[in-house]
Design a binder for these strands. Structure first.
Length: 159
DNA sequence: GCCAACGTTGGC
DNA sequence: GCCAACGTTGGC
């Protein structure tokens, strides 16, 4: 499966769009994904040059804060091999260098929205234009989800 | 802080 | 391979 548009979740208390704006070259490593479904997308589907919504989760105003571009496609996540890292995975090593368990991306901030497009605004369109938006589905917890071109374009009209 | 939803683990 | 227990996510 390939797709050109995605949505990436981040907790702004840990790393928000302001942090990305302040990062060198407005670029950061997107690491620490420890879910197999999300991992598969990082590894197999997300390509350099694809774009993604930067979504703020677990915060006062959940919603889409801006757009990032994939600066580097999926590569083995170094944090999985670093015992001092919060995301260290002791089982990772046994998968071997040719079949890493976890993957990371590099993303560059393309632009911050003038305002956050809030989750409740997105949900207001769940009966129509955004009926299939994955993050609006019940119980969805994936930190990486695909977005269709139709959904992408529609969200941009909400800004 | 609560709790629903869901993924992962491990005993059997 | 089943499934209970456990951990995590994330909105509220």
């Amino acid at each position: 499966m390939t797709n050109n548009y995605w949505l990436l979740k981040s907790e702004p208390d840990t790393f928000g769009i302001e942090d990305l704006a302040a990062a060198p070259k407005r670029t950061t490593r997107w690491d620490g994904v420890r879910n197999f479904q999300a991992r598969n997308m990082l590894r197999d589907s997300i390509a350099k040059g694809d774009r993604a919504f930067f979504y703020h989760s677990s915060c006062e105003i959940p919603g889409i804060a801006g757009i990032v571009r994939i600066a580097k496609a999926g590569y083995p996540d170094p944090s999985a091999f670093d015992p001092k890292n919060h995301y260290y995975d002791p089982d990772s090593a046994k998968y071997g260098a040719d079949a890493p368990r976890w993957y990371a991306l590099d993303v560059t901030l393309e632009r911050k929205f003038k305002r956050v497009i809030r989750l409740d605004e997105l949900r207001a369109h769940a009966g129509a234009a955004l009926a299939d938006l994955v993050i609006l589905r019940r119980g969805n917890r994936l930190s990486v989800t695909p977005v269709s071109k139709k959904e992408w374009d529609f969200v941009l009209t909400l800004e």
